[in-house]
Design a protein around this nucleic acid. Structure first.
Lengths: 136, 136
DNA sequence: TTAAGTGTACCATTTGATATAGTACATTTA
DNA sequence: TAAATGTACTATATCAAATGGTACACTTAA
C-alpha cells in the first residue's frame, strides 16, 4: 500500500493519511478521478479504525482534495483548487518562519533551505502541477 | 512583555513560549547571558501556571538555548549550538516538504516560498547569527 | 428484488498530552 | 536568616485522538 502509518509518530494517524494522500496526488501517483480504497478497506490495510480513516477522508474532502460519493466511493478530485486563501498563506509563511528559526540554531543557512526546496520541487514535480493543470 | 500567549491557539502554551524565546534570541533581542524572567515571574505575567513555564524552560535548556542555575535564575546560553544533528536536519527537510506540498495546493510556487525565505531572513537577520557568533 | 459495498452518523470508552493547583525541597543571594 | 530561585512530586481536569460497536442511506451488481 502506498500509505504508511507510523504508530510511534506524534503526528495523529488521520493527519498522516491526509499528508500522504496529498503528496501522492502532487506527485501524480494518484491521478484525477482515480478511486481510493474504501474506508473499511484502507482501515483493514493500515490496521487502524475505520473511523480514523473516515476522519481523514472527510478532512480531505473539506479541502477539496477528494470527492466522496455515497455508496460509490471516494475519488481524487478534479475540481480546481479553491482560491488563494489569505489565511492559508499566512499559515504557510508562519511555518516557514519557524523552520528558518530552527535552521539558524543548527547552522543551516537560508541558502541550504533554498537548495532543499529546489530538490524537493523536482522530486515532487515529476507528477502534476495541481494548480495549473486545472486552468488549461 | 516580549512573550505573548494566545490562549485560543492550538499550539500548547509551553511550545509558544519556546518558539518565542528562540525567535527573540535569533533576532538578538535577547542577548547572550541575559537573564530571563523567573518561572514564577513569567507565569504571573503570562497568567499561566508556573509548571507550564518550567516545562518550557526545561525544554529550552535541553535544546541548549538557555542555561538554568539553581537559585540564580535562567539565562540565555552562550554555549555553541550542538553539532549538526542528522535527525534535526531530517525533521527540517520533512517540514519543508510538507510546506511545499501545501503550497502547491494553493498555487504558491517554489519561487514564492524562496522569496518569503529571503524576506524572513532579513527580518530575523537584524539580530545575531547564532551559529557563527559562537565560533569566533 | 436482493445482497454486498459504500460513506456516514452516532455512542461509549480508553489513552495520552496539556494545563492547572498545591506543596515541598535544595540552592543561591542579599 | 530570609527571600528568590529552579525543581520535584502528587493530584486533578480537560481535550484531542483513537478505538469499538452499531446502525442507516445510498449505489452497484447479481
Amino acid at each position: 500500500m502506498l500509505v504508511h502509518i507510523d504508530q510511534k509518530s506524534q503526528t495523529p494517524i488521520y493527519e498522516q493519511i491526509i499528508k500522504q494522500i496529498k503528496e501522492l496526488k502532487v506527485k501524480g501517483i494518484l491521478q484525477v478521478n482515480e478511486k481510493l480504497p474504501s474506508v473499511r478497506e484502507l482501515s483493514s490495510i493500515l490496521l487502524v479504525n475505520p473511523n480514523t480513516v473516515s476522519k481523514a477522508y472527510q478532512e480531505l474532502e473539506r479541502q477539496e482534495v477528494i470527492v466522496t460519493l455515497r455508496g460509490k466511493g471516494t475519488f481524487i478530485s478534479d475540481q480546481p483548487v479553491s482560491n488563494l486563501d489569505s489565511k492559508k498563506m499566512e499559515e504557510l509563511k508562519k511555518t516557514i518562519k519557524q523552520v528558518l528559526i530552527e535552521a539558524k540554531y543548527y547552522g543551516v543557512s537560508k541558502e541550504q533551505l533554498t537548495e532543499w526546496l529546489d530538490e524537493l520541487d523536482k522530486e515532487l514535480g515529476g507528477g502534476t502541477d495541481v494548480k495549473s493543470s486545472k486552468l488549461k
